[in-house]
């Protein structure tokens, strides 16, 4: 039952590597969005340090949405989706495999790059750990929710734009707890509750989002 989903996971990673299209635009957008804030708000180090967790989280959230409409688009266009439906593995497994590959290509690089941006925003050193832990727990949830959205808009007019409207409201809890945890650490408070909420959201997302994405993919075939 697992073999077909693993094959899909490996193929998606291989395609991302061959096309170089996965990580670069996401990371570029992530960095650019963060860079815009000091330009707009002025270079006051104290102000930037105070709002750095929020800026980095919003940028990570919006950068994730950029490539979501591509998760299933080419497989839908060339008929590979039919093969996934006919495969002996459940469609939800395939959706999970796609989410895992997408996160490795777009989410994980953002987590790894976040200390550099935190440095540019003058974030105190003791917050780095919480920020990265939060992003590590939160960005997979963003991708999982995004697979549902990406499947829902297959074949829609102006799907990419619509996708942002659909998924960003669902991202609100992740943003609140993620930025909240880093903010708590910044103010010398306990960041653990926020991180635990992020972990809980990730578990719920792991359980429900593949099923939702599978239902949406079946709808896309009709």
């Amino acid at each position: 039952m697992l073999k077909p989903a693993l094959a899909l996971f490996r193929r998606d990673l291989l395609l991302a590597w061959r096309q170089r299209g996965g990580a670069v635009p996401v990371l570029g957008a992530f960095v650019l969005m963060v860079v815009l804030f000091p330009l707009a708000l002025g270079p006051d180090p104290a102000l930037l340090a105070r709002i750095a967790p929020g800026i980095i989280w919003v940028a990570a959230l919006l950068a994730t949405t950029i490539t979501l409409d591509h998760i299933f688009a080419s497989d839908h266009a060339d008929g590979t989706l039919d093969l996934l439906v006919e495969s002996p593995a459940p469609l939800a497994m395939h959706a999970l495999a796609k989410a895992a590959a997408h996160w490795l290509v777009s989410g994980l690089p953002m987590v790894l790059l976040s200390p550099l941006l935190a440095l540019m925003l003058n974030l105190p050193g003791h917050v780095y750990g919480t920020l990265m832990a939060g992003l590590l727990l939160g960005t997979p949830t963003l991708t999982l929710i995004g697979t549902v959205g990406g499947a829902l808009i297959l074949g829609a007019r102006r799907g990419g734009l619509l996708l942002v409207l659909l998924v960003v409201p669902l991202y609100v809890p992740v943003l609140i707890f993620g930025a909240g945890a880093a903010d708590a650490a910044l103010n010398g408070l306990d960041a653990a509750p926020g991180l635990m909420f992020l972990g809980a959201l990730l578990l719920v997302g792991l359980a429900l989002c593949p099923l939702g994405a599978a239902a949406a993919l079946r709808a896309a075939l009709t």
Binding site: R11, L15, R18, Q19, D75, A77, D78, G79, T80, D82
Partner: peptide, 10 residues
Amino acid sequence: GHADPVKPHL
């Protein structure tokens, strides 16, 4: 089906 599920980069 009529579409070829062929990935050009493979």
